[in-house]
């Protein structure tokens, strides 16, 4: 179980590289979405590993909020915000 967690955390690095390097704002938005999806999975792994059930609710809340955030930011960018 800890192995899977560390591998997922290692797989966060490419998302952060894309967040840093991405030429356009949409690459960064995509990197943010990918990173937060993986963080949700790390929280779930941690919850199952330590037998603490309330962390699962944290993961569900975080997944829902990050989904909202990304959709709202993409609507904002679509309206020509940020770089017009």
């Amino acid at each position: 179980m800890p192995l899977v967690e560390t591998l997922i955390i290692i797989s966060l690095v490419p998302a952060l590289v894309l967040l840093w390097r991405g030429p356009t704002a949409w690459d960064r938005l995509l990197a943010y979405n990918t990173a937060s999806n993986r963080i949700v999975i790390v929280i779930c792994l941690f919850a199952v590993a330590t037998r603490k059930a309330f962390y699962l609710d944290v993961a569900v809340g975080y997944a829902a909020l990050s989904f909202l955030g990304v959709v709202i930011i993409s609507r904002f960018l679509e309206r020509g915000g940020g770089h017009r």
Partner: peptide
């Protein structure tokens, strides 16, 4: 999928 769609649509 919804998120991927909304990002690609806005781009």
């Amino acid at each position: 999928p919804i998120v991927t769609h909304s990002i690609s649509r806005s781009a």
